[in-house]
Write a protein that binds this DNA or RNA. Sequence first.
RNA 1: GGGUCGUUAGCUCAGCCGGUAGAGCAGCGGACUUUUAAUCCGUUGGUCGCCAGUUCGAUCCUGGCACGACCUACCA
Length: 501
Amino acid sequence: MTQENQPVIYDENQIIAERRAKLTEIRQTNNAFPNTFRRDHLTSELIKQFNEFSKEQLEEQPTIVKIAGRMVLKRVMGKASFATIQDMKGRIQLYISNDHTGEPVHAAFKHYDLGDILGAQGTLFKTKTGELSIRVTDLQLLTKSLRPLPEKFHGLADQEQKYRQRYLDLITNEETRKVFAIRSKVVQAIREFFVERDYLEVETPMMHSIPGGASARPFSTHHNALDMALFLRIAPELYLKRLVIGGMEKVFEINRNFRNEGISTRHNPEFTMLEFYEAYQDFTYLMDFTEQMLVHVAKQVLGTTHITYQGKTMDLSISFMRLTITQAIQKFHPDYTTEQLNDRDYLIKKLQALNTHFNPNDGIGGLQLSLFDETTEHLLFEPTFIVDYPAEVSPLARRNDNNPDITDRFELYIAGREIANGFSELNDPEDQAARFQEQAKAKDAGDSEAMHYDADYIRALEYGLPPTAGEGIGIDRLVMLLTDSPSIRDVILFPQLRQED
RNA sequence: GGGUCGUUAGCUCAGCCGGUAGAGCAGCGGACUUUUAAUCCGUUGGUCGCCAGUUCGAUCCUGGCACGACCUACCA
């Protein structure tokens, strides 16, 4: 904080210097930052309520209103002026004239700048073009804006600045405001969906002493008083299942996960995950449940299940396809024969030829998955559940009753991206202990994303986890889909960026 | 990590095949009592991302660096 009432001289441009001079002048006669003005209406509510009224109706029954907001447009014309005020709901036009405010108020207004926060009182009327406006009788500067806004017509174009100075993006870009309004509604609709179904919303730790629940590298930190290493969580899964063991048979959590990995248009180091668990259900139930939830969310938020994403359309209300990994590969690449896809040597040769990353020690299932990731995942535009994930890459999922090499697990792909991952939970503590041991071995062998052995979780399982189904849904990616956003940064208010300077 | 492109006034952008820069918006001054990105007249404002090199001379050419966007690879 700088000393009060001591204008600080910065090395800054002329526009800021002029605005600062205006502020200094205001300080000399008034409280420059008053907090006594109270509005009684929001702009778009006024328009909703009064736009249907005729010019004459408004004159016959004068309605006095008080609004406040940021001045985003200004048109001065001698003895009368217009200004457009923007608040959280929209915009409305002010008409300021010597006749109604007196000359001094209008004169002061002429020196107000775009970006200033104003409070206005006046009477609703319609201009000769029929625009609902406020004939101002009282006008107050509530907050002086010292920095000029981005160009009023083009707005903020620089992507970096949009992310770094999101407030400017929000002031100038209606689309951005809409995206985050939709994001809020998406989360709201999801909550409703779970609460209606008797789920309990919970919050589990963000700081884990053993990072678990996913295969990813964690951020690490240190607790001074306890002198212990802590990790920002990569997933809440193991804690949520402890709660199911504790008798919370239907739980969900919407919260942040942190993964110390690459940043891209689809990845932010912290991202929002919905995870939910329901006892006495399995993964097939989850697939139906997910379809219903997405339909609910789309209808609540967009009013339709027809989605356009990057120029292509889909309908979320149509039953989603369900394919095994090899079926999906063959659907898009019919030239692969079933024999080839079950031939280790063939798969390894093919993956090498594709120049892709894979683990040559994987079994058939792991190799098939690598081939799927490389050749098919990005082509799954229509919502598709991929099932039959190999046990070796699913250390927390229940084995299939007929084939112990695969698990009762699915991933949901929409628009070429993984949106959800769900499975029947592994509730056999001895099998879980063995899987952790395998993971620990892989970790020792250099796999930085392999899971740790979590003895407390095994102890919890030994008390008995009821048969349970659980799923995670990437909220950011879902919002990308529902807002037609090409980058995850467009749906996160303050995405991770490199440090400035 | 690799590739492509970018960085010029507060903002949106031109421009210069090497002679140190322009427009619109915003600002300032003036005209204008129903404008709609108001209009009209005048006007202020720039270390052309940073550092080297080549050159008589670099915003422009070369090299390096920084930052960013997009694509690509790994992770959701």
